[in-house]
Design a protein around this nucleic acid. Sequence first.
DNA 1: TGACGAATTTGGATCGTTCCAATTATGAAT
DNA 2: ATTCATAATTGGAACGATCCAAATTCGTCA
Lengths: 347, 347
Amino acid sequence: MVKERVTVVDIARAAGVSKSTVSLVLQGSSLVNEVTRAKVNATIRELGYVYNRSAANLRQSKSKIIGIVVNDLTNSFFAELAVGVDTVVQSAGFVQFLANTSEKIERQREVVASMREHGVSGLIISPARGTEAADLAPLVESGIPVVLVVRDIADAGVSSLTSDNHAGAMAAVRHLIERGHRRIAFLGGFPDTAVFEARMRGYRDALLEAGLDAADGLVIGSAPSRAGGVTAIEQAMMLSERPTAALCFNDAVAFGVCDGLRARRLEPGADFAVIGFDDVIEAKTAVPALTTVSVDPQGMGQRAAELLLKQINAGKAEAESIIGSVRLVVRQSCGAAIERRTREALS
Amino acid sequence: MVKERVTVVDIARAAGVSKSTVSLVLQGSSLVNEVTRAKVNATIRELGYVYNRSAANLRQSKSKIIGIVVNDLTNSFFAELAVGVDTVVQSAGFVQFLANTSEKIERQREVVASMREHGVSGLIISPARGTEAADLAPLVESGIPVVLVVRDIADAGVSSLTSDNHAGAMAAVRHLIERGHRRIAFLGGFPDTAVFEARMRGYRDALLEAGLDAADGLVIGSAPSRAGGVTAIEQAMMLSERPTAALCFNDAVAFGVCDGLRARRLEPGADFAVIGFDDVIEAKTAVPALTTVSVDPQGMGQRAAELLLKQINAGKAEAESIIGSVRLVVRQSCGAAIERRTREALS
DNA sequence: TGACGAATTTGGATCGTTCCAATTATGAAT
DNA sequence: ATTCATAATTGGAACGATCCAAATTCGTCA
């Protein structure tokens, strides 16, 4: 029942060469003769040999693993991010070790420790809420390349890849103002995160720029989820002076806001303008199609992976902070397309 | 710059004990004296020691890794499944190695091979479309415990955990028939999968049972995604005799169908009944809330993980096929709740 | 034929842990 | 003081790959 493990020595014996030669074949060295290589490869297949990475890692004290830890895998933004990372990591001959922290610092500590024990060559982290520079200190001191994505952490001394949340929010609010809206809400998200802070400042700055009042009353936090969007819009509609438009913390919130609007017999787009943030895949196909600030999660994952690989290959690179640009994708949920259609019909 | 790796020997030297004792402490053996243990643990922390799992795995020829491979991580059903697996795997002291195949057989072969090389103790696989028993043969022969989830593969000789797709579909269609619908469509999904087959048979059997015509015309396949749902309902509405209700292949398709309905100024629930399949988190909060057949993805992940752990601990267990039960969750998208409310208002 | 450089091949030594059998310390009982 | 069981500790020998320096083969040219 219990099969004997087939090792390089077994291959060597069966193929009539030394284990060193087999090892050379395994790593595709050009030193070995073509016919020897063929013979070895044949016996490898024949005996059903399985490479033992633990042994190799031990000797080389490095692995071909890169770790990615995300704070919420059930959020499709992060699932897509992970997929983006995977595509480039994979074609560079690494394998991805993906862990989910569910926003829990303690769990994050565990998974990072586990990854270090497995000897990952680098780590891409979308930190859990509340992560501080001190939490990452032992990791960065160890010299393992780390790239932070989505959420940056001040003074952590590692590279990061975030998106230009401030500019994106400003662009969205400017667009709303151009369309004639004056009471614009900012809905959803946890107020104690850097991303919320940046998007909210962008919202506020656009308001100020247009000489509009930027009172706090129209900023309503909530969980950054669909359900959170529902509660946020409900709260917003209780206000004595209701908003006529909203920039949402992310697309999930925006979808929730649309749901909540419909529950009050208001049609998103026509009766109330809503803009999301992220541009997840569903944004395009939803009805009405969601106007949103596109941050391209897959592309972000890819760029993060490229940045990490660069650092791994460079041995030691300076920490660089990249702020990815972002663009407003105007679809239907902000009412623009409908108005255009109306205008065309009139002309 | 390059730090010397701290090993058990360094710890041993610093703590004034032998490396064997340190090893004993590391694995929490009761053989070691309390004060020695404390001393060793102190030096471990002091020197910033990082356990080397590659070395341990090599020696014990086994790892505390379990692998999970899913066919589409951007589908939240599978993301939730993975989260469910993670919770139980983690509390059993294993770490999860998650890979995404994007429905590609070739990629699946690669990730499974990679996992074997890393010496996973077991594997949970949601196979890519078109996977055959032969593809898994080398894996099962190697004696690594494998559990198939979601999609079963005939004669693969491994355990599987699927859900009762046939019964779920029947229950949904029966419900639609009770509500007075006579022209019911089955929308979305790839017709060449076992899951599609089972759900479609359930749909058909319920129709037959009620003496209704089960012609092929109302069965319309598509990609099992939101976008696929949009195209499927469009096709359905082109039919000369339009359906008044639809059972959808999964929730993503159902959401797409709702979108498509709205694009034609039809309100899902009120004007057209739609039922989904899976019960992903958004089903509850969507507007209208989606009536759907609940398969509880997280719970499924948990049960799959438990099944796998049982097999790992048992050494060698018989392959068992578990078919999880499933229940219809009636919400608003099938019109039921609205009618009930109407009835109550009248009474 | 012998010499020489290039192309191939090879035998240890080694990575950091665990396991085993054996040893030493401890303390109670005689 | 001696014996004996128990508790605690310990030195090698693995595990399966890679790496290095050295050895072997080969073809070519003097």
